[in-house]
Design a protein around this nucleic acid. Structure first.
Lengths: 152, 152
DNA sequence: TGAATATTCATGCAGATGCATGAAATTGTT
DNA sequence: AACAATTTCATGCATCTGCATGAATATTCA
């Protein structure tokens, strides 16, 4: 039996196309807001927020990679930039000299807070302003189904 | 009266975070499929498809920009690569020597077709496989609400 | 123990992207 | 007609990303 090429339905194709478009559109708007306010890219925010949420403000690069879905080499260089700007600090990992711990600094915490002051309202405008509360919940639920399996 | 900072609700924040995550995840999977099959990035596909859909296989760069949400300088260089590979051809725009027309070649059409042979099934797996038909429609409808106003 | 394997992080290089600017042509204004 | 403003596309430069690989340490297994 011939292996038929599996054509996606119109609804599925539509969902796919709009996932790309909407993401580009919304992310573009929000990043523009952030840049307009003189802030670094959202990737910086993601890392800072992840660190800030840990009780000790520390995490290994490996863990951050998984949390923010960043490539290893990519994160390595992002951490360089964050460290150069005094937002994080690399410290030794006790018991394994291959690894390291990244610790957020006071400046890092302060930047995260200041960024949220622009980021939060931008999300409100670009997402909250377009969807009702119920629709936002629906959207979140549907998008979750697209993920591999586990959530956060 | 003080201008209060507008905090997004949890549902809205959730929708935002998952929009980023799901898109990264799904696009990542599909682009990996394409790359695994030896194909160029999806941006190439978008341009080829747009051209192929026009009856004469032609469009101005300006028009393509709007259609695929690409920056001008970015598209300019993408067209360079497509032209180098013989997938499109730049021809004069009748009546305005500033502008140009981009025309898809036979090779371009052929590549688009071959890419669809991998792209379609990849969409089926990564989107169709995770959502029912009705869910896909819902998702498409919700994402559409995030866009500025008009559709395609 | 010792050698092979695996894990963690960094880096050189090529390619892609963003930003600012430039070049060429057209349109608008007086 | 002549000059300014606008539109369309290209490009130099810095930054960012992807890929391959390297260096250091840790783990596994014979």
């Amino acid at each position: 039996m011939a292996q038929e090429v599996q054509e996606p339905s119109d609804a599925v194709t539509d969902a796919w196309v709009r996932l790309i478009r909407a993401q580009r559109e919304v992310v573009g708007r929000i990043e523009a807001d952030m840049k307009g306010a003189g802030f670094p890219p959202l990737t910086w925010y993601d890392v800072l927020l992840h660190l800030k949420r840990r009780p000790d403000g520390r995490a290994s690069p490996r863990e951050i990679e998984d949390a923010v879905l960043f490539e290893q080499y990519n994160l390595s260089r992002l951490l360089d930039r964050l460290e150069t700007d005094g937002l994080v600090r690399r410290i030794p990992f006790p018991g394994d000299r291959r690894r390291q711990l990244v610790e957020i600094t006071e400046e890092g915490r302060a930047l995260q807070r200041r960024m949220w002051g622009v980021y939060g309202p931008a999300i409100s405008r670009s997402v909250g302003g377009k969807l009702s509360e119920g629709e936002a919940e629906q959207l979140a639920a549907l998008l979750l189904k697209l993920m591999p399996s586990e959530h956060t």
